[in-house]
């Protein structure tokens, strides 16, 4: 089979070594795909290199076939990299590049391999900040790492949302899952402010809320992975929440129903986020390896102090970034 069936490889993986191995594997796969059961056909006469759209079409066809026959792998948490990379994330890229013009700083603070816990501030009424952080780490980190996020209970009770969240690599925010992911060498993202952070009124923007109960710190201590404080500037302004339809929220069983200057007044148009300029900064990792492991996780004072340290770091970075920012939109 000529190279016409080339399926574009995503630039993934750690060192060039791993990449070469994977490329070799992919070549084998391709060969298998090209000739499912019969021996390899004689080499075809050389043809011009396939054009870009042909390559895309071939890739799309292979993807479609994999989906139709269920021929893809998921991990224990339900993470489906095939779907995430080809369907769920691509529509977000224009939002990342063109709309919010996200600028990343300190990506080298995120390790290339092994478990690490990214802790970030949460804002914007809709968790777009989490999606943008995922893209920042996948597209712009040298090791192209998938961020495995820990989500609130609510996410996993909602129809449609729940399976999508799992397929995108997220799981329930509970210590069992966090420790399992971290011990497995995954990069885990957590937004410890939860609904208090994401659903806070516009007047309280960039004021960090309580950082949960420090569960994320004890998970990091138990697994001995570094905590990477992450400060996100710009997400607060995408949907300035000036009111909360409390009774409607109670009726729908949601933590809040946002009212912004444009939503719900302008309907669907009001749901378009404002094009604020974003900065995502990954801070110095806080090492937990030498703090005493599981014993340290059972020391509430240490956990509280470490939680506060992470929170203070993010808060001060946020203030610094805000000072540097010229305007909300540029």
């Amino acid at each position: 089979m000529p190279e016409a069936t080339v399926i574009p490889l995503e630039p993934r993986g750690g060192g060039s070594d791993a990449r070469a191995r994977r490329a070799a594997q992919a070549r084998r796969d391709r060969a298998e795909e090209a000739a499912p059961s019969e021996p390899a056909p004689p080499p075809a006469p050389p043809v011009a290199a396939p054009s870009d759209w042909e390559r895309k079409l071939a890739g799309g066809l292979a993807f479609l076939r994999r989906r139709l026959t269920g021929d893809y792998e998921i991990d224990d948490f339900g993470f489906d990299p095939d779907l995430t990379d080809h369907v769920l994330l691509p529509p977000l890229r224009p939002l990342y590049d063109k709309w919010f013009r996200v600028e990343t700083r300190g990506l080298d603070n995120v390790p290339d391999v092994g478990g690490a816990l990214v802790v970030a501030n949460h804002s914007g009424t809709v968790p777009i900040d989490a999606l943008m952080t995922t893209l920042a780490l996948l597209d712009h980190h040298p090791a192209h790492r998938h961020l495995r996020m820990l989500g609130a209970d609510l996410v996993f009770t909602l129809p449609v949302v729940a399976p999508l969240a799992r397929k995108a690599g997220n799981t329930l925010a509970c210590n069992a899952d966090a420790e399992r992911l971290l011990a497995g060498g995954e990069l885990v993202g957590v937004w410890p402010e939860g609904f208090k952070g994401i659903g806070k009124p516009f007047s309280e923007r960039y004021k960090l809320q309580r950082f949960g109960r420090g569960g994320f710190v004890s998970a990091a201590l138990r697994t001995g992975v570094p905590i990477i404080p992450c400060s996100i500037v710009g997400a607060e302004e995408i949907y300035p929440m000036i009111g909360n339809a409390k009774s409607l929220a109670r009726l729908l069983g949601l933590p809040y129903v946002p009212i912004t200057p444009f939503f719900p007044w302008l309907g669907a148009l009001g749901a378009v986020p404002l094009p604020s300029k974003w900065i995502i900064e990954f801070g110095e990792p806080i090492e937990t390896k030498d703090l005493g492991g599981a014993a340290a996780a059972d020391d509430p004072m240490l956990v509280f102090n470490l939680t506060d340290q992470v929170r203070e770091t993010i808060q001060s970075t946020l203030y610094t970034l805000l000072m540097q920012r010229r305007s909300v939109f540029f």
């Binding site: 069936t5 795909e33 075809a44 043809v47 042909e54 026959t69």
Partner: peptide, 25 residues
């Protein structure tokens, strides 16, 4: 629905693509 059908259909489309290009070349 036989999964081999999907594989075969994909192969046919790709072959058509290659034929088309070879012809134009």
């Amino acid at each position: 629905f036989n999964p081999e059908l999907a594989v075969a259909a994909e192969q046919r489309l790709l072959d058509a693509l290659v034929r088309r290009r070879t012809a134009s070349d």
